[in-house]
Amino acid sequence: MDALKSAGRALIRSPSLAKQSWGGGGRHRKLPENWTDTRETLLEGMLFSLKYLGMTLVEQPKGEELSAAAIKRIVATAKASGKKLQKVTLKVSPRGIILTDNLTNQLIENVSIYRISYCTADKMHDKVFAYIAQSQHNQSLECHAFLCTKRKMAQAVTLTVAQAFKVAFEFWQVSKEEKEKRDKASQEGGDVLGARQDCTPPLKSLVATGNLLDLEETAKAPLSTVSANTTNMDEVPRPQALSGSSVVWELDDGLDEAFSRLAQSRTNPQVLDTGLTAQDMHYAQCLSPVDWDKPDSSGTEQDDLFSF
Rank of each mutant, 00 (worst) to 15 (best):
T230K: 06
K123E: 15
N102I: 08
F169V: 05
P202T: 14
G45F: 05
R238V: 04
S298H: 08
R9C: 14
S6D: 10
D253I: 09
A221C: 05
D252Q: 06
R238K: 13
M46P: 11
A162Y: 06
S297F: 09
A80H: 12
D253G: 08
M233E: 05
Q86L: 09
R238N: 08
Q173I: 11
T77K: 11
N229F: 02
T158A: 13
H28A: 15
P15W: 06
D273T: 07
D273R: 06
Q20V: 11
S81K: 13
Q134S: 14
T104K: 13
V248F: 15
R182T: 14
A133S: 13
S186M: 07
V290D: 08
N34L: 06
E40Y: 02
Y118I: 04
L305W: 12
A195G: 06
Q139C: 13
K166V: 03
S49Q: 09
P237A: 06
A241C: 09
D2T: 03
M55T: 10
L107F: 11
L223T: 09
H144Q: 10
P94K: 07
S307Y: 09
G8Q: 07
Q60F: 09
A76P: 03
L212W: 12
L90G: 01
H28W: 07
G275T: 04
K83L: 13
G45Y: 10
K91D: 06
Y52N: 10
Q155F: 08
V161K: 00
H282E: 04
E235A: 14
Y114H: 12
P222E: 14
E44D: 13
D198G: 07
L47T: 11
L255C: 07
L251E: 09
K179N: 07
D303H: 06
E65D: 11
S246L: 12
K150H: 03
A195C: 04
H125D: 00
L50S: 12
Q136A: 15
T231I: 14
K91Q: 10
A228I: 11
N138L: 09
S288A: 15
T267I: 15
S265M: 12
V247S: 09
L159T: 06
N34V: 13
A263Y: 07
G275M: 04
S6R: 13
G194C: 11
A195D: 04
A80R: 12
Q86Y: 13
V290F: 13
R115C: 04
N110L: 07
S81A: 04
D253P: 02
T89A: 13
K5D: 06
H282Q: 12
E250G: 08
M55G: 11
C199V: 03
R151Y: 06
D214W: 06
G82C: 04
D234G: 02
F169A: 02
G25Y: 05
N268Y: 08
D198R: 06
Q285T: 09
P289H: 04
L212V: 13
Q270W: 02
T149K: 11
D126V: 00
E178W: 14
T200Y: 05
G26S: 15
V247I: 11
D122S: 00
A3V: 11
E188K: 03
A284R: 09
D126G: 00
S227R: 14
T36H: 11
C143V: 08
T267A: 10
S135P: 15
N138I: 08
W22D: 03
T218L: 06
L206I: 11
N102K: 01
L57K: 06
G96H: 12
S297Q: 10
L206H: 06
L17K: 14
K150N: 02
T41D: 14
E109S: 11
I132R: 00
M281Y: 06
F259I: 04
Q173D: 03
S81N: 12
T300K: 11
S243R: 12
K220T: 04
I116G: 01
V75R: 00
Y131E: 00
L11R: 08
Q270G: 05
A278P: 02
H28T: 10
V111M: 15
H125L: 00
G190N: 04
K30T: 15
A168K: 03
V174D: 14
S49D: 05
L4D: 03
Y114Q: 02
A164P: 05
E216P: 11
A156S: 14
W292L: 13
T160N: 04
P61Y: 11
A278S: 06
A168N: 03
P239S: 12
G8R: 11
K19C: 09
P201C: 02
F146N: 00
L147C: 03
E188I: 02
S49H: 06
G189A: 05
Q285K: 06
V161R: 00
L213W: 03
E301P: 08
T41Y: 05
L103T: 08
S243Y: 07
V271E: 08
R29W: 13
F306L: 04
G275D: 01
S265K: 09
S49P: 09
L305Q: 07
L4I: 10
D304C: 05
V128H: 00
K179G: 15
R196C: 11
K166W: 12
S81V: 03
E64V: 10
G244T: 04
Y118Q: 12
R29C: 14
D293C: 10
V92P: 01
S245L: 03
D293A: 07
D296F: 03
V248M: 09
S307M: 04
P202C: 01
P222R: 14
C148Y: 00
T231Q: 09
R39E: 15
R9K: 13
K152Y: 12
K72Q: 06
T100Y: 05
H28M: 15
L203K: 06
D273I: 08
K181H: 14
D37M: 13
R266A: 11
Q136N: 13
E40G: 11
V248K: 07
L287D: 07
D2P: 03
V75T: 02
Q106S: 10
S14H: 09
Y118M: 03
F48V: 03
A7M: 08
D183S: 13
T274C: 03
C286L: 10
A208K: 06
T225R: 11
G190W: 02
T277E: 10
T300G: 12
A219R: 09
